[in-house]
Amino acid sequence: MSQINNRQAIHYQAQDRECEIFNAAANNKLPVLLKGPTGCGKTRFVEYMAQQLKRPLFTVACHDDLSATDLVGRHLIGANGTHWQDGPLTRAVREGGICYLDEVVEARKDTTVVIHPLTDHRRLLPIDRTGELVEAHPDFMLVVSYNPGYQNLIKGLKPSTRQRFIALEFDYPQAKLEASIICQETGLDTQRAEQLVLLGEEIRRLKDHDLEEGASTRLLIYAAKLMQLSLSTTEACMAALAQPLSDDRDTIKAIERLVNAHF
C-alpha cells in the first residue's frame, strides 16, 4: 500500500468524460468502480484525479490473502504494551482521502463486510476489534478497480457489491490519443510512436486466441522507452512486447515478423 502526496504534476489524457464523472462522484460522495484491461491507465487516472482534487491517495494492491484486517487495521505490540494501528482504509476514512483498492476481486470475501457500509448512505466503518464506529470524513472516497478480462465464474464481483458503485469503463485509448500519450511519456518522435501504436493494435487482435491479453499502453510505453536507448527497434519491441505477452515460441516468432514488418 502506498500513499501519494503532491509531488510533481501527473500527466493524464482523458479518453472521454471520465474526469468530469469522477469529479461529480467525488462531490456527491459516491464510490467509483473502474474496470478495464491491464495497463490501460486506471491507476494513473486515480492518481491524477487525487492530485486534481487535492486529496491524499491510499492505494492498496489487493491479493488473494488480503483480509479485512489488512484494510481496517490491527493491534500491534510495542515497547509500551499493545496499541492499535489503523489500516489504509481506516486512515482514509478518518483523515479524508481516496482509498483505491486495485484489483478488488482478488481480495478475500470478508473485505466486502467493510466495503458495504462505507459505500451506501451510511458511510460508516465499524471496527469490531476496538468497538469503534468511525464516520467517514467528508473528503473520503472509495475507488475500486478490476479487470473484467480475468472475470470468471469463481471470482466475480458480486452484484450486491457492484450495485453500490458508479462505474467507469476504460479501454486502450484511440490510436491517435495513444500515440500522443507515448510521445508525452517518452519523448519518442511522432512517426515511430504512430507505427508503434499500429503494431500494438495488431497484437491486440490476438487476444483470446494466442494471447490472454493484448499489448497494453503501458507495454507500448516501455517499448518506446527502450527504443530511445541504444537498443535496435526490433530488440526493444521483442523485449517489451513479444516476450512479456507470450511463452509460445511460434507466437513470439510471429510477433517478431510483425515487428519487422513495421520498422
Binding site: 511460434d250 510471429a254 515478423r257 514488418a261
Partner: peptide, 12 residues
C-alpha cells in the same frame, strides 16, 4: 503453419 496463422490474425 502456426506462426503464419498468428501473423495472419495480427494483420487483420
Amino acid at each position: 503453419q502456426s506462426q503464419l496463422s498468428t501473423y495472419f490474425h495480427c494483420l487483420g
